[in-house]
Amino acid sequence: MTQLTINEVKRHAGLARLAMTDAEAEMFAGQLDDIIGFANVLQEVDTDQIAPMTHPLPLYNVLRKDIPTDALDREEMLESVKEHEAGQIKVPTII
């Protein structure tokens, strides 16, 4: 059975861009261990000759005509943006 370390949890949290304290990482380590253990039962299934199912429907290359339509309104969209100026979204200094 896997024993996730706090550092492993924090590494995954970093990849998912989730800030995490050691205490939180410890809590999630225990919970994730439980789920991973729960999923271990899958190893007993023989799937050597089985193709993975990626989607419930056999769909290939669904296309549509490229017809211009009205785009969403910029002013309306900016109403959900916390900080913006002159139609531009503001973020903290990058460089």
Partner: peptide, 19 residues
């Protein structure tokens, strides 16, 4: 989805989904 478990967990799950 991580490289370490992609095959034995994610792809495995997709195969059992087929079954």
């Amino acid at each position: 989805l991580g490289a370490a478990h992609h095959e034995d967990l994610y792809v495995k799950s997709q195969k059992v989904r087929t079954l």
